[in-house]
Simulated scan of single mutants.
Amino acid sequence: MNTFNIPVHSTKTLIKASLIAATIASLVLIICILPSEYNIDPTGLGNKMGLTKLAQQTHGTTSAIEKAESNSIALKSDKVEIEIPANRGLEYKLLMEKYAHLEYQWQTNGKPLYFDFHGEPKGDTTGYFESFSITTSDNMKGSLTTPFAGSHGWYWKNTTDEPVTVTLTIKGNYLIKG
């Protein structure tokens, strides 16, 4: 029979280890984390080690992003129903800034439509557009981060002899052009 001698630590040893761990964690917080994350350097060691530069770079990037977002269109969501006439096509567009994010989902009442999800650059007069998805379906769900400012949206074509209703749910930074 094998006997294992497992050491049992006393309460005094466990308290001592916990206090040492708490002291080390506090030192790491004061010397490393506060200077590098929040540009707070009570000891001056963060500056000497170059950690405050990290906080300044991160803060500068965050400020630039916040400034860009404040100049753009506010985040919102909409749900719309769009009727596509029989044997006709229809476009539905959103005005969006460069790198704006859009989450979307659309569905019909079960009848498939040909569609082209695409964007047209702001101010372009050549007729250029970039397609993101082209197929025939009765639904689609996805997201888009716009590669350029301009008009982005869908062209749906109904090849049936009856109108088809598209229910579109969108969330992002956009203005509805219609």
Score class of each variant (00 low, 15 high):
K76C: 14
K98F: 02
F117V: 13
Y92H: 13
P147Q: 08
G60L: 03
K79A: 11
P112F: 03
H59P: 00
L113H: 00
G123Y: 11
W156A: 09
H152V: 15
P121G: 03
T145L: 09
G127C: 07
K157N: 10
W106C: 06
D138P: 02
L75E: 12
S77T: 05
T108P: 00
L144W: 03
L113W: 00
D78L: 13
G110D: 08
S63M: 07
I65A: 02
P121A: 06
E97Q: 15
N71A: 14
F115A: 05
K157F: 01
F148R: 03
N71L: 15
S133W: 04
S70D: 14
V80I: 08
W154Y: 08
H118F: 03
E81H: 14
T145E: 06
F115L: 09
A149Y: 03
K122E: 10
Y128Q: 07
E69F: 07
E130L: 13
L95V: 08
V80M: 12
Y104C: 08
K98L: 02
T136S: 13
A149C: 04
P147K: 07
N71K: 15
Y99P: 00
G123K: 06
N158S: 07
Q105H: 11
N71W: 08
P121I: 00
G60I: 01
T61Q: 13
E103F: 07
D124G: 07
N87P: 05
M140T: 10
S133Q: 12
I73P: 01
